[in-house]
Design a protein around this nucleic acid. Structure first.
Lengths: 191, 191
DNA sequence: ACATTAACTTAATGTCGTTCATTTATTATT
DNA sequence: AATAATAAATGAACGACATTAAGTTAATGT
């Protein structure tokens, strides 16, 4: 399914295409999903799971270095979005008929990813960054910036991949510089 | 049409609905638009025009105060997005079948709005803010943040309007504070 | 008055999601 | 192992919808 989304560059995929990719007829799908919307919701969930596990393993590997994780985790996020633009759009801008009522940050799905970001920011705080700041607020700001940049890039169908990557990476780097600037002076060099 | 988009909360509007809103039959529409995609592209263009004129009049009224314009212009942008969520989504996240190949910042449509933002930032620069910074880069960052916050809020169908407004406004205010912080000290108080 | 064009309408076609009755395969029971 | 019960899948059919084709009406120019 995720493959199909990527191939079609659109989540308006005919059920017959899904069916023949799976090796059955369209009505057979209704044994597993109540309707097409439910199928797409499942694909969306799968997308969130992939993104989550990707970021989770990264956060475990870099537990000792929250600041570094924040950067690398953001890079991973951006790469995921640029590598799976259609899936990303399904996750973060689903059509209303999917019946996805809440945004990714409130629903159980995206919430776990958001919590990883929160943990990263809190980790930075224990290292002296962002002291005295409202982490929830800052996390929303951080996510908004990256998400917005990714959205604008994904939308563009003429820009090549490396140009997109550099544009969004620049946004991430700027955010990281801003966080670095909140640390007491002696930390500035080491990063 | 714009009314219809708002009413249906979705741009997957049947042509028959458009037709009867206009007072004719679906095939009659083909005299004015090559197909449904062309009709939606026209609605999208109308959306960009409204946003542009709104921001343009604001920028003219506040020509003397670039920093203030940047804030108020952003507020206006956010209000437009939150007041017309479906139209905004059509403008910034159109389905691929519309044939809109470039992102809003590259196309003629959104480019004019982007130029207004650039002009605002340049104006701030002449007032001593953001000295020595790459304005194009900063504009992308600025737009990304606001756009991302707006996207996340629009996506949420349970949050009430004032909560959304406050969340995005907070992002804008944070951005403005960051710009204010780039000015030489004596400017900090007056804002 | 009559041909021509424009704007519309009704009718028809094709795609697609979805439902339903029926058939096929699978499991359970004796 | 044979048969009943159940689950799963299929083919045909329906309804919604975009789009095209053909025909109708109204207006315009000569």
């Amino acid at each position: 399914m995720v493959r199909l989304l990527a191939a079609r560059d659109d989540f308006d995929v005919p059920l017959v295409a899904v069916a023949q990719a799976v090796g059955c007829t369209p009505p057979a799908l209704y044994g597993y999903f109540r309707n097409k919307a439910a199928l797409l919701r499942a694909a969306r969930e799968e997308g969130f799971n992939r993104l989550y596990t990707e970021k989770l393993t990264l956060s475990e590997r870099m537990r000792a270095n929250p600041f570094g994780y924040l950067r690398e985790g953001s890079y991973a996020y951006v790469r995921f979005a640029l590598d799976n633009p259609t899936l990303y759009r399904l996750m973060f801008a689903p059509p209303p008929n999917l019946g996805v009522g809440d945004d990714p940050l409130s629903g159980d799905l995206g919430r776990r990813v958001f919590d990883l970001l929160l943990a990263g920011l809190r980790g930075c705080q224990t290292q002296g960054f962002l002291s005295g700041m409202d982490i929830n607020r800052y996390a929303f700001m951080f996510w908004s910036s990256v998400h917005g940049a990714v959205c604008l890039c994904i939308q563009n169908r003429v820009l090549d991949e490396t140009a997109k990557w550099e544009a969004v990476r620049d946004v991430v780097d700027t955010l990281m510089r801003m966080i670095a600037a909140t640390a007491p002076g002696h930390l500035h060099r080491g990063i």
